[in-house]
Nucleic acid binder design. Structure first.
Lengths: 208, 208
DNA sequence: GTCTATACAGGGATAGAC
DNA sequence: GTCTATCCCTGTATAGAC
């Protein structure tokens, strides 16, 4: 068999992460062995340790990179406009970003418990930052009397669960295409916060 | 050490399932070993095979029993009234039932991929039956002009994701107690379907 | 019904040759 | 940079004593 010579760390490294992401998303971190990942990449198991200090770091890096890309992408959005616009921008972004990265999303939600406490804390912190962006929009809309949200924190969790849940059942060959799903979800999002466009009565008086 | 004598299968069997549920909810099916479960129960690993033919069946039984209890409990509800009432009854039930069974819920959502195809099909079928109950309520409300729901199937998935998501962050010692959370979520649920009580305009014309 | 003992496969990770 | 070989542990599951 022809065996590769020379340096390939700049190629093999990404291949290792890609294979790990695919396998972990499908079978779960604990169920995937380093030998499987190596087989997928086309190297021996021992060679993986040239690209990652251990299996835990491999998982952490996948989740960290995913969250960093998420934060970078969301930071590029303009969320400074009216809260209704910001909410729509955020929701559209969330749907698109997550549907485009089904594997990474799945891992980031399912494998949190397989992180060491330190690594978990880091990912949880990034996630909280992301959620806070949405909550800030809701707070602005509530303060402006445009949204009727009993509790902005709970609404944040509810909206993210609802939007992210999409990734668990969406299929490319499903009944509705992405544009339709996006439109329908946006309608539900707006209704859930009783977007001011619906001309509702006074917000409920609920303690923060 | 005093060693138990006589028959204990009626006691040890449930203890095995309880230990398995606790450990699998915490660490994941693939990460939990039969040795761990046995240690928790207080028997040797080999003894577990008196109560389950194998590890897969242990997982499947946990999920099957959970889903069967869910279907039995939901069947006892009266969902025949006005759709607004039925939706409220269903949502309250879903929240309470799921918060009371955090471990079983977590397992039923996280470990689907660790089921054999046959076992998966069985659980998926039960879940679809449950979801259909909610969708039926939404269809009734839409037909009666009480709910503004662009798509009942998507609204079903969105509502279930939102309500079930609660279990991932709810803590007994959190900021809000269960009654408050339930009330807030019900408000959001009603708003999301634009419950007719809000006196809205015509439903959007959207293809089924 | 539970035990000890064990079979056998596979796990993560490392050492040292090439 | 990748290989083979290997260490040592743990996995599921079974056999047979008590």
């Amino acid at each position: 068999m022809a065996r590769k010579t020379g340096s390939h760390s700049d190629i093999t490294g990404p291949k290792v992460r890609a294979a790990a992401q695919q396998l972990i998303a499908r079978d779960g971190f604990a169920a995937v062995s380093m030998r499987q990942i190596a087989r997928e990449v086309g190297v021996q198991a021992g060679a993986l340790y040239l690209y990652t200090p251990d299996k835990q770091t491999l998982l952490f890096d996948l989740m960290r990179v995913h969250m960093e890309e998420l934060m970078e992408a969301v930071a590029a959005l303009d969320l400074s406009g009216p809260p209704q616009d910001a909410l729509e921008t955020f929701a559209r972004f969330h749907i698109t970003f997550h549907l485009d990265r089904a594997e990474a999303v799945f891992i980031s939600y399912m494998e949190l418990r397989n992180l060491t406490p330190e690594n978990f804390a880091h990912i949880a912190d990034l996630r909280l930052q992301y959620e806070t962006l949405l909550e800030t929009i809701l707070k602005r809309g509530k303060a402006a009397g445009r949204f009727t949200v009993p509790d902005t924190k709970l609404a944040t969790m509810a909206l993210i669960a609802m939007l992210t849940g999409l990734t668990t059942w969406y299929r490319d060959d499903g009944r509705l295409d992405r544009a339709e799903i996006e439109r329908i979800y946006l309608t539900m999002v707006r209704q859930m916060v009783s977007d001011g466009a619906t001309e509702r009565v006074e917000p409920l008086a609920v303690p923060l």
